[in-house]
Design a protein around this nucleic acid. Structure first.
Length: 491
RNA sequence: GCCGGCGUAGCUCAGCUGGUUAGAGCGCCUGAUUGUGGAUCAGGAGGUCCCCCGUUCAACCCGGGGCGUCGGUACCA
């Protein structure tokens, strides 16, 4: 190996990142457009913010130190200030609102679509760069805004072809969760213990009831032999929490009733239940039934900033890949965060919103085979016979393009046979063929590549194949109309 | 972060109880077919068997370390 070889980089990308090519991008673009359409119909306005924010704006300094916390991609600018790639769209929104709130309408409703970055271990359907479609309402504490989140999401899903019954939105309220913790005698100041309980609750769907019981009590040993310390609750306390987790039934009002008992007079808990009841009425008014939105007490949604109602969405069917069931995880997360803006201004500004995970949704639809076919327009390929007549070929391309038809010249150096292979691989609908015969006669030959592909399945005889049933000859001046009629055959 | 599986051609994967020339299918290239994508047939190109160190007369295979990847678990705005 020479020194030069040693210095030659291996082409590769960092783990958790990906290249997306034409079909992926077309699918994503289509999905994002559908989602944006719904957001705008609900009155949200577009906002875009930079990929980088200062680290203190994101709130990701390690406590008592000037180094970034884990989980963010951070670097130091030339003025020594730490900045980091945004890890969601909510923190930049808070910053934007704190900075420009006086010039914005109040309440302020905006959506933001784009990539976010998290420096953590990638997993199945989990990347370090991924797209989120976020929408939020800042400046109102009305439960209407929270209930509307459900309507927005349900509308999006259904517009994307995920019908009623295929998905379920799960709503809970952090205040109820807090109330239950009050009720079992875990006070606010025992934040460590409360966190451990919340973490345990969050794992219900993965570890099941027994796993959660262990985590609430002494702790749990997992399959790999790793031991997780539990919350150390007493048996009676565990029973209350498990009862709470079991309170999810299809009747939302009944859930509220059960929760009211479980929070045992906790003021915070009572308030949470009242909020849920209000949301229930609003959902009813929007015709969102229990087949679309459920109250599920096990929903925690992370540990950080949510202060009230929280929501997540899951698909109700299982997806198999390579014969194995695939866990799709949550396709959307959101909730109310009433003190996020306060960090900047000292003023308490209520806000609520949610974020659709585009990549997971895309993966789900793809696994289901419900992705609409790649609709990106494939170009007509103009093959080249006589290299000294490039101007004539170029004119054909211009004519087609002027008529709004995607077209390209074959730009390689290979022979005609290879040019057609190229067009085939490109999934081009039509090849334009013009050699000396055509030029002499003032015609062009148009080959319907899609029809040809179809016919080739039936033709096994070389001579029949050579008859070229998928080709037509038209006058040069009829190039555009001729191509158009071939394109229309298959649309 | 911790635990485990895997890493052989562009892709999917075989193979070797360690023995010198490492295979298949698909894909790719050339031709049969002076101007026609398919099918068929005949040829062909393509591999540091992930990297480094060690054991050995001999390592793609065994041992150690690393990297990557996949899965579980922890953390997660």
């Amino acid at each position: 190996m020479s020194d030069r070889d040693a210095a030659r980089p291996t082409p590769r990308i960092p783990r958790g990142f990906r290249d997306l090519f034409a079909a992926d991008l077309a699918a994503r673009r289509q999905m994002v457009q559908t989602i944006i359409g719904v957001y705008e119909r609900f009155g949200f306005e577009a906002l875009d913010t930079p990929a980088f924010e200062y680290l203190d704006v994101l709130g990701k300094f390690l406590p008592e130190s000037d180094t970034p916390a884990g989980g963010v991609f951070a670097l130091r600018d030339d003025d020594e200030q730490w900045m980091a790639l945004r890890y969601d769209h909510t923190a930049p929104l808070s910053r934007f609102y704190a900075q420009h709130g006086n010039r914005l309408t109040n309440p302020f409703r905006r959506y933001q679509v784009g990539p976010v970055w998290r420096q953590e271990k990638p997993g199945p359907g989990r990347f370090r760069e991924f797209y989120q479609c976020d929408f939020d309402t800042v400046g109102t504490d009305s439960m209407v805004a929270d209930a509307e989140i459900c309507a927005v999401v349900a509308t999006c899903f259904e517009a994307l072809g995920i019908g009623r019954g295929d998905y379920i939105l799960k709503v809970n309220n952090r205040k109820v969760l807090g109330g239950v913790l009050d009720a079992i005698g875990l006070p606010q100041d025992q934040s460590g213990g409360r966190l451990t309980v919340l973490r345990a609750i969050d794992k219900l769907d993965r570890l099941g009831e027994d796993g959660v019981r262990l985590l609430l009590g002494k702790g749990r040993m997992d399959a790999s032999g790793d031991y997780t310390r539990g919350a150390g609750l007493a048996a009676e306390q565990i029973e209350i929490v498990m009862g709470y987790l079991g309170a999810c039934v299809s009747d939302r009002q009944e859930v509220c009733g059960r929760l009211r008992e479980l929070v045992g007079g906790s003021e915070e808990g009572e308030e949470g239940v009242r909020e849920l009841e209000e949301i229930h009425d609003l959902l009813d008014a929007m015709d969102l039934g229990p087949d679309q939105v459920l109250f599920d007490p096990s929903v925690v949604r992370g540990l950080a900033y949510y202060t009230g109602p929280v929501v997540e969405a899951v698909l109700t069917f299982e997806v198999e890949e390579d014969g194995e069931k695939r866990e799709l995880g949550s396709l959307l997360g959101g909730g109310r965060y009433d003190d996020l803006v306060e960090r900047f201004t000292g003023e308490k500004i209520p806000a609520t919103g949610a974020s659709i995970g585009v990549d997971r949704l895309l993966a789900a639809l793809e696994a289901l085979g419900r992705l609409e076919a790649d609709r990106a327009e494939r170009p007509v390929v103009i093959t080249i016979f006589e290299r000294d007549r490039m101007a004539d070929y170029q004119r054909m391309a211009s004519d087609l393009r002027s008529a709004g038809i995607a077209a390209e010249l074959y730009l390689g150096k290979k022979g005609f046979r290879q040019q057609l292979k190229y067009a085939d691989k490109r999934d081009s609908p039509v090849a334009v063929i013009a050699g000396s015969n055509e030029f002499e006669g003032g015609t062009v030959t148009l080959k319907d590549l899609r029809l040809g592909k179809k016919l080739s399945r039936e033709i096994t005889d070389r001579e029949k194949w050579k008859e070229q049933p998928a080709q037509v000859s038209v006058k040069r001046e009829d190039l555009v109309s001729g191509v158009r009629s071939l394109l229309e055959r298959h649309s």
